[in-house]
Amino acid sequence: MVSVQAPLISNLDAWLNVALIRQYHENLPRDQARREVLASLDRFGLGAVADRRISSLDDQERFCIMLLRAAMVKRSVLVIDRPFQIMPDLQDVRYVGRSLKWIDDLYEECHIFDYVWMKDQYGALHGEEH
């Protein structure tokens, strides 16, 4: 689930927010979890934000961290709830499409939900794989 209703944990660094899922459910050792999360963050070019607190991230960085966190679930089906609410300054949905392509090996399905009146914003996704 990627949604404003499921915010990032504010007292954890960015990488720990992503690592939490596998550390908790798969008991993945901390060092290994960190290596894997850093490799995943590099796909977005966000390796530098790994040790930053959530409050210092911008909307797009937060979205990527939320997306990666959701993709950490085994055989994950991503549900993105109103991406324009997470990133209010986003012009169109292409950034979401690009982000999903960068991690397309980490999830099985992805569903984006939004209000009908936001339909025009999703024009860029038509004809794409996602």
Binding site: M1, A6, P7, I9, S10, L20
Partner: peptide
């Protein structure tokens, strides 16, 4: 204060959404 802030920010919902037991974690 930390737990109250987490509650207000709905961060506890996040934990339950990802099936993380609040008592354990």
């Amino acid at each position: 204060a930390e737990i109250a802030v987490m509650k207000v920010n709905q961060e506890l919902n996040t934990l339950s959404l990802f099936n993380i037991d609040v008592l354990d974690y």
